[in-house]
Each structure stands twice: as structure tokens, then as C-alpha cells.
Simulated scan of single mutants.
Amino acid sequence: MTAPTDLHTLTGAYALDALDEDERVAFEQHLAKCEDCAQEVRELTATAGRLALAATMPAPPRLKAQVLEQIAGVRQERPHSAVTALSRTARRGHAMRWALAACVAAAAALGGTTLWQHQQADEARQQAEAAQRQADQINEVLAAPDATVTSTAVGGGARGSVVVSHDSDKAVFIASGMAKPPEGKVYQLWFTDGDQMRPAGLMNPSRASQSVLMTGAVDKASGVGVTLEPDGGSKQPTTQPVALLQLPA
């Protein structure tokens, strides 16, 4: 069993399903309380999934064992007990290298079969970096000195809240307990400007609770709306709003 002080280093192995049962249980208990590790797992899982799109043939049954043998020498650093922002960044970069090393080992185990290409790996890395930048922007709005919030019931026990920072001209929509949209549909966010509504981003249809950085400037918007739209969103609302919130002054 990995010691508790080593759990921070298991994000890469967890994302690649390379932990034994005891390690997985211990890490998932830790994951529920550690947002840094949760963010790393999300990024690494997305990266691994993107790289897997380049697979050209089914993996042989012994692939997992072969990968683990080849990456056994990849060294992971033990985190300090007091984790600073700099050390979190270093761990994230180390874990990302761990995942990429596993993909390289998998390619070698397949005897030269191309599992991923440089361009695809670069795209996956850029997507992870973009996700991190958006998370940072959300945190900046939530922590802004002038941040104000308004909330409303959305239906079915769900709630929606909007946090606005007029100084940064940004808003974050926070959903809790949203019902899954019907197949082929997505929740779309809107800023209301008088009688007009302008698109402000799409919600993730697979997540009941999430925080979304709304696209576009808050400017003089008086409120926020949520509608159910076709996949990809609409230029103008096509359904009645499932939620309307007045923006805090």
C-alpha cells in the first residue's frame, strides 16, 4: 500500500488505470479531498483519451503489463508536506510527463504501431493548458474583491448561480444538480441586454454540477438566461429559458 504522503504522486497512474485495487481505493479517498490532484487527473485523463484516438489496432492482452514494465523506471518526486503553488505546477508537469511516457512505452510494446503522432500529442497538451487557464480565470472571478452573486432554482431541485466581477467584466455561472439534457441537446447560457439575448457559452451536458466562465463581456447586461438548445448551440434562443437570473448590480 502506498503511504499517504505518496498519494499526490499517483495521479498519472490513476489516469491510466495502472493502480492495484488497494492503491486505487486509497487514492480515490484522497482524491475526494484534494482539488490539486483532481485537476491533474482531469487533465491527464483528457490527454490520454486524446492520444488514444490515434490507435490503429486493438491492444494485445499483455499491453498493460508491458507498459508497466517499461515505465517502472519513471521516477516521481515526493511532494513537500506544505504544497506551494510552484510545487503544484511542478507535480502537474511531472505527472503529464508520466502519462506521455506511458504512451511512448505502449507504442514500443506494439512493435512500432503508431498510437499517437506529435501533432496530436501537442493538441492534447494545448487542450490541457487551455482548461487550466480557464480554471484560473474562474477562480479569479470568484475571488475578485468586487464579486457579487445571485441564485435561483432551476427546477427538479437544481440551482443556478451567477458570480459577477464588474472590475474584470467577467461572469461565472455555477450549476448544481442540473438534469441531464435530452440526447442531442445542450444547455446554453445567455446574457440579456434589455430585450435582446446574446450567446455566452455552453454547459457540459455530461455534468450535473459545474462552473462555467461565461464568454463575452458582462458590459451592461441586466441578466443571465439558460435555454435548452441543439448540440453546438444557437445564435438566438429557440426555447423558453429554463432559468433567468437578474445580474447583481
Rank of each mutant, 00 (worst) to 15 (best):
Q127D: 06
V74Y: 14
S222Q: 13
D6T: 04
V67N: 05
T150R: 14
D136G: 10
S81H: 14
S234A: 04
M96E: 15
V25I: 09
D231G: 07
L213P: 00
T148I: 05
E129M: 08
V212A: 15
T238Q: 04
F191C: 06
V164S: 14
G184S: 06
A95R: 08
A243M: 15
L228E: 04
R24S: 01
F27D: 03
R91Q: 07
E23A: 03
A179H: 03
T11H: 07
A52G: 12
Y14P: 13
V141P: 07
Q210I: 03
L63V: 11
A26W: 12
S222L: 11
Q236H: 13
Q119K: 09
M1V: 13
F173G: 00
T84Q: 03
F27Y: 13
P237R: 04
T89E: 15
A90D: 09
M57I: 01
A221L: 06
M96L: 10
V172M: 06
C103L: 08
D136Y: 01
L142A: 03
Y187I: 00
T47Y: 14
R97T: 15
A243G: 03
L244C: 08
A13R: 07
A101I: 10
E183Y: 02
E28Y: 02
A217C: 08
Q196E: 11
D17Y: 10
A108M: 07
Q137H: 14
A85Q: 13
P205T: 01
Q246P: 05
P58S: 03
H118K: 08
R50E: 11
V163Q: 10
P230S: 07
A105R: 09
A82V: 12
T148L: 06
A102T: 12
S222T: 06
R50A: 11
A48F: 14
V242P: 01
C37M: 01
T56I: 08
G160C: 00
D36C: 10
V154S: 01
L51S: 07
A65M: 14
K235A: 07
A175S: 05
G223E: 05
W190V: 01
W116Q: 15
L86C: 04
G225W: 04
R97C: 14
P230K: 06
L19Q: 14
A18L: 07
Q70S: 05
P205E: 03
I71A: 01
T11N: 15
E35Y: 05
D122R: 09
A102F: 11
M214N: 09
T239F: 02
G160Y: 02
A124V: 00
A46Y: 02
P182H: 04
A65N: 05
P181G: 02
P205V: 01
A158T: 10
L51D: 02
T192Q: 07
L16P: 09
G184E: 05
T113M: 14
D219L: 10
V172W: 13
S206L: 06
N204V: 06
S209G: 09
G201P: 11
G12K: 09
R62W: 15
M197T: 08
A105D: 05
E229A: 13
I138K: 05
L244S: 12
T47W: 08
R92F: 11
G155F: 00
R97G: 13
K220E: 11
A130E: 12
A131C: 00
D146H: 02
L44S: 04
V149I: 00
S234C: 09
E35F: 07
M203C: 11
R159Q: 08
K33S: 14
T84P: 04
D122W: 13
C34M: 06
G177P: 00
Q188H: 09
